[in-house]
Design a protein around this nucleic acid. Structure first.
Lengths: 147, 147
DNA sequence: ATCTTTGCAAACTTTTTGCACCAAT
DNA sequence: ATTGGTGCAAAAAGTTTGCAAAGAT
């Protein structure tokens, strides 16, 4: 928390109650937190904090590179505290919404192709890829009658 | 258009004026059309068509697999008429929003890794990857002072 | 004639903004 | 004392819904 405060101060910004609450909320969950989750958790942590402050705080913390967001195909955007070695990408199951972190090394083949053939530099952490996890694939094979 | 009508009829559904307008709007643009674009184009093509009908039509056409959507990291969701050989994925520049279609073959390395190591079947057309195209990377290097 | 789809209006959800006040530095 | 940030309330954006009427088959 002090680290975060220092980062903010370096930018001429301040550590405040709403910001503490947002950071606490993000830290409490392992990662992949939706705005909705943040709003709910923050208002539990400190009911005085207003929605608008949560939105503004997420924006400020993003600008300061303290938090990062990942767009999911469905289900909007999730936030998490940025780690120094943010070297994985996200893959999400389109059925159960499970998110899997994949080491960035795995993406290098793709990144290399994009760079070479398309002069395009991939930022693999920004958007989650979509697909089907094994469990949901099995469930679909069995048929939705199974439920 | 008749093809689409046939597909709808096969599902016990009907071809109507709003649906024609939406399909015309989607066909007129090469692809990657936002709801906003569809709404605007449709109301030009036929001002009697209501917004709500556009939303409902996009949903119906999606359900019938006549149109498909792609989630972009920023800028929401874009629609396009589904092609039989939908074998490319999308990559989008985070600065200029340019969308590049990449042949699916290029993604096979990644797809293979996900399948083998994570038991995850990638649906690569559903979400656009994000990154920086060459032009924007150059512009950033020059510095935003260049504009 | 039947039954799907439409237009409309209103509701809803989510996010943003203007502004006076509060509070971190 | 500064001036960045907050809470509030209202507006803005984007999407959905109930319903009576219209229209495709």
């Amino acid at each position: 928390m002090d680290e975060v405060a220092a980062l903010l101060h370096r930018r001429g910004e301040r550590m405040t109650r709403p910001r503490e609450a947002v950071i606490t909320a993000l830290a409490a969950r392992s990662g992949h937190v939706s705005v909705e989750d943040v709003l709910r958790d923050v208002s539990r942590l400190d009911p005085r904090v207003h929605r608008a402050s949560v939105y503004r705080t997420l924006e400020a913390l993003s600008a300061a590179a303290i938090v990062q967001h990942v767009h999911l195909g469905h289900g909007g955007t999730v936030y998490h505290i940025r780690e120094q070695d943010e070297d994985h990408l996200y893959v999400q199951c389109r059925d159960c919404r499970l998110i899997i972190d994949v080491p960035r090394a795995q993406l290098d083949a793709m990144g290399e192709i994009l760079r070479r053939h398309y002069d395009f530099e991939l930022h693999p952490t920004h958007v989650a890829l979509s697909g089907l996890c094994g469990r949901c694939r099995a469930r679909r094979a069995t048929g939705p009658s199974g439920s």
